[in-house]
Design a protein around this nucleic acid. Structure first.
Length: 239
DNA sequence: GCGACAG
DNA sequence: ATCTTGTCGC
């Protein structure tokens, strides 16, 4: 789907729910078979009380976790923040950012939940369904499900459940810090999402893709970076 | 009816 | 999400 085809303006929660249920049926969660060479982080930033959205996608080398390229887009939201419907507020801008990329990432880690959602369609799953690309969600707070606190040591994790259904994992990415919530979005298995998240974790609470995306969109919002798609010099050897 | 509630 | 200083603990 193209970024120009989505318009969530004046959508009601009822209509949004119908869209979520429909998109959910297009998801696949088969283990990823191809090698991951690049992974991107997707995030947005905005000023308080403003409807201007600064969206960004930062591509990293999957092995070194160093930024290779980034795409930044300034847009306007046409949907309020409603728990469970975050995608309708942020996905349009992310679609624009994705659309202008010249080199696409193998996997995208989105700031928010994947299938760990009331209707199994968090923003990571929503974006993954629209662009038909492997995605996973990395959220800082729980939206849905139950879990037992993982041990305080780095890399410990516990399952996020809904009844007998596994929704994702609560992962301690650093000693003695609050855990993050990992779940597959599209084209990735539950295990894939966990392994990818652990692989991308360095010495910070947030995995590198999400951490870098957050850093870039904030630099964009504060005028330190310009809108557009850019390849970093360090990436020439790989592209 | 009462809590919970991504960003 | 963003606004913000110091402060407590490892």
């Amino acid at each position: 789907m193209n970024s120009k085809d989505l318009d969530y303006t004046n959508l009601t929660i009822s209509e949004a729910t119908v869209i979520q249920n429909k998109l959910r049926d297009s998801l696949t969660h088969v283990p990823l078979d191809k090698e991951i060479k690049t992974i991107a982080g997707a995030d947005i930033s905005l000023n308080r009380f403003s409807d201007v959205i600064y969206a960004g996608i930062v591509v990293l080398d999957f092995n070194t976790l160093k930024p290779l390229a980034y795409s930044l887009v300034k847009s306007k939201t046409s949907f309020p923040y409603v728990p469970g419907f975050l995608a309708f507020r942020e996905v349009p801008a992310l679609m624009e950012a994705y659309g202008q990329m010249l080199t696409k990432p193998d996997v995208i880690m989105v700031d928010g939940h994947g299938v760990a959602h009331p209707r199994r369609l968090g923003i990571a799953a929503h974006l993954g369904a629209l662009i038909d690309v492997p995605t996973l969600g990395c959220a800082k707070k729980k939206l849905y499900g139950n879990f037992e606190e993982p041990s305080i040591s780095k890399n410990s994790f516990s399952p996020l459940m809904s009844k007998d259904e596994l929704l994702g994992y609560v992962v301690r990415t650093k000693n003695k810090v609050k855990p993050v919530y990992i779940s597959p979005g599209n084209q990735l298995s539950m295990e894939d999402s966990l392994q990818i998240a652990l692989h991308c974790t360095r010495n910070y609470r947030l995995p590198e893709p999400t951490r870098k995306a957050h850093e870039f969109v904030n630099r964009f919002r504060t005028g330190q970076l310009k809108e557009g798609f850019f390849q970093l010099e360090e990436s020439q050897a790989l592209f």
